[in-house]
Design a protein around this nucleic acid. Structure first.
Length: 343
DNA sequence: GTTGACGCGCACAC
DNA sequence: GCGTCAAC
């Protein structure tokens, strides 16, 4: 049907109406009998400092709370949430004892498992109510399922692999952070009482309903539609169309890069070798990354000398390239590949 | 050079 | 959460 009623170039929809996001539940302070200890002594934390402390307490069993970078980043961000009094007392993370808090959360999760049928049913019904109210939108005469209408609660950033920002505080997203996208002729969702949206825009050249900027990488997060939606299905179909078009010209591309290996220009030869490896090994392209902002991972075009060994001969094979690098998600790629001499 | 808008897949809790 | 790619 997307072939029947296609939009002009770049237009994604004509009408869009939705109820906005569901925010993370507010922080509930710990019961008085759950204690935090500093340097062996009980210490009552302010609500803000306590909330961030609970994030750490919930992760206590994970290995990364022992990692230097994680602890350093966490402590720095935690201190920002403290009162000046707390700040002057709590100066060493190693003197902080979260074990009682941790035990409390374990007991809570046990209690949740032991909930009665009625209590579980109540939660289920509440979830269904939220889904019914916020889980759908109307896009061009169709009611569509939204993929992620709940905004993630605050917590500690982990990241994959050896991430320089692990342990940093992912702050709570507020209505004031939120950009609402909908059509001019739709009913604009209302922010929670006493709050305002950052912005309401009407951009039908994009598919998202809600966006905000996350504080770790300053990257934009979106609320978008479910794969069952027209907009996602159409895009998915186009992707396979691209693959089918590639099938028609892949032989030509392969011949071309083999020709380019012989070029006088080094740039052209390099590009041709990169393309060859992407083709042969299905490597990712490998964009440049900002050092210190992300884990040190690479793809084909960002490989460095230390990731490659060239063997004129190895295990009875000639011209072997040995790859050893951390790729996407810091997953190790290790491979020994015999190639043509010219490569 | 930077950033906005996506698609993908793993880990984890339920 | 992490990558790509095109638009800015």
């Amino acid at each position: 049907r997307w072939e029947e009623e296609r939009y002009p170039e770049g237009i994604k929809w004509k009408f869009l109406e939705h109820k906005g996001p569901v925010f993370a539940p507010p922080y509930e302070p710990l019961p008085e009998n759950v204690k935090f200890y500093y340097d062996g002594k009980v210490m009552k934390l302010s609500t803000k400092a306590e909330e961030v402390a609970t994030f750490f307490a919930k992760m206590l069993d994970h290995e990364y709370t022992t990692k230097e970078i994680f602890r350093k980043n966490f402590f720095k961000d935690w201190r920002k949430e403290m009162t000046s009094e707390e700040k002057s007392t709590i100066t060493n993370l190693s003197k902080c004892d979260f074990t009682h808090m941790s035990q409390y959360f374990k007991a809570q999760s046990e209690a949740r498992k032991q909930m009665s049928k009625e209590e579980k049913q109540k939660i289920k019904e509440e979830n269904e109510r939220l889904l019914k109210e916020y889980g759908y939108c109307v896009m061009d005469n169709h009611k569509e399922r939204i993929a992620n209408f709940k905004i993630e609660p605050p917590g500690l950033f982990r990241g994959r692999g050896n991430h320089p920002k692990m342990g940093m505080l992912k702050r709570r997203i507020m209505p004031e952070d939120i950009i609402i996208n909908c059509s001019k002729d739709s009913k604009v969702p209302s922010p929670p009482p006493g709050h305002k949206w950052k912005e309401v825009r009407h951009d039908n050249k994009v598919t998202w309903l809600v966006s905000w900027t996350e504080n770790i990488q300053s990257s934009i997060k979106y609320i978008m539609l479910n794969p069952s939606s027209r907009i996602k299905g159409e895009k998915d179909w186009q992707k396979y169309e691209t693959a089918r078009r590639l099938k028609k010209c892949v032989d030509k591309i392969r011949n071309q890069y083999r020709e380019d290996w012989k070029s006088k220009e080094m740039k052209v030869r390099q590009r041709a070798v990169a393309l060859y490896f992407i083709d042969k090994l299905a490597l990712r392209a490998g964009n440049e990354k900002e050092e210190g902002e992300t884990a040190d991972t690479v793809g084909c075009c960002s490989l460095r000398v230390e990731h490659i060994k060239l063997h004129p001969e190895l295990d009875g094979q000639e011209y072997v390239v040995e790859f050893d690098f951390l790729g996407k998600d810091s997953i190790r790629y290790y491979n020994k590949v015999p190639v043509e001499k010219r490569v």
